[in-house]
Design a protein around this nucleic acid. Structure first.
Lengths: 146, 146
DNA sequence: ATTGATTCAATCTTATTCGATTGATTGCGA
DNA sequence: TCGCAATCAATCGAATAAGATTGAATCAAT
């Protein structure tokens, strides 16, 4: 090991690059849908649990209203979802998928699995890296979350 | 495995979260220096090789002028570096650390190693995760780079 | 030497992130 | 009920990212 502080020995830099590359990877797949990477993450969350509040969505994505408000407005304009004010508490905002948002799931998952199989990504390594990353995240959360 | 497409089974989401947490982690350490995470990456690159062109810096950081130009201008304003037009090719931009930029290295590295040791991050796991992540990056580059 | 292609940083626009504040709405205690 | 605290989404400002274009400077081939 030459230099411990060298850029290429920094895990943060490695994660930084991996994140940007995932962005480009999904951009290729999502281009036909005019969806961004973050917007796709919102759809993933809604495909699991539809009709939830901005607050609840933000809890899963670790995003607050400063990011989500404009993100969701753009997705509403694009027709993926609708934003509703519930009568019982008009401070809240309910996010609900449209038909377009619901039906896109099948096609996008097909596009993705095709791309993954074409590129021979090893499922075992994928799961191992995911598990290790989650441990890192837990450690980081222990440090940064007050 | 319940749902392969669930948000929490997505490696991209795990990387996305890890990246944001690293941002917050470094933000804590870098706050006294008024440096952002990305600006710290620029300093790391310059501590290894000072006096290089924007182009060369961008090759290592995988960033182009659209991101680097304003980033470097802010860092020049803050006194970390100077931006110079070389006589021999005035299209280029040379980036050079100031004394402030050079001398900050020791203190920041001390702050970092202290924070790492306080939080018992395992160096072996760190290296393993780094190596695995680099493999992922290589695979992703194979897909997204034309 | 002049034109035409190439190489650069800079600029512009759009989309996140995120700390901080604002303002509307609700709930709760006196 | 009256007022204060708490809870929300929305807004604001700054800093990345990144595709696309621009314009200056250089190089190459006539």
């Amino acid at each position: 090991m030459e230099n411990k502080m060298a850029l290429n020995n920094q895990l943060c830099f490695s994660i930084y690059n991996a994140n940007r590359l995932f962005g480009r990877f999904y951009q290729q797949i999502l281009a036909p849908y005019q969806l961004t990477y973050t917007q796709y993450l919102v759809l993933l969350a809604l495909w699991e649990n539809d009709q939830r509040t901005l607050h609840d969505l933000g809890r899963e994505l670790h995003l607050a209203s400063n990011t989500l408000t404009s993100l969701l407005k753009r997705m509403e304009t694009a027709g993926w979802l609708v934003r509703l004010r519930p009568e019982k508490d008009r401070r809240q905002l309910i996010v609900q998928l449209t038909e377009k948002g619901k039906t896109a799931q099948d096609q996008i998952e097909r596009d993705l699995s095709q791309c993954v199989s074409e590129n021979n990504l090893d499922p075992t390594k994928y799961q191992q890296l995911l598990a290790d990353n989650e441990k890192l995240i837990a450690a980081l959360r222990g440090i940064v979350d007050k």
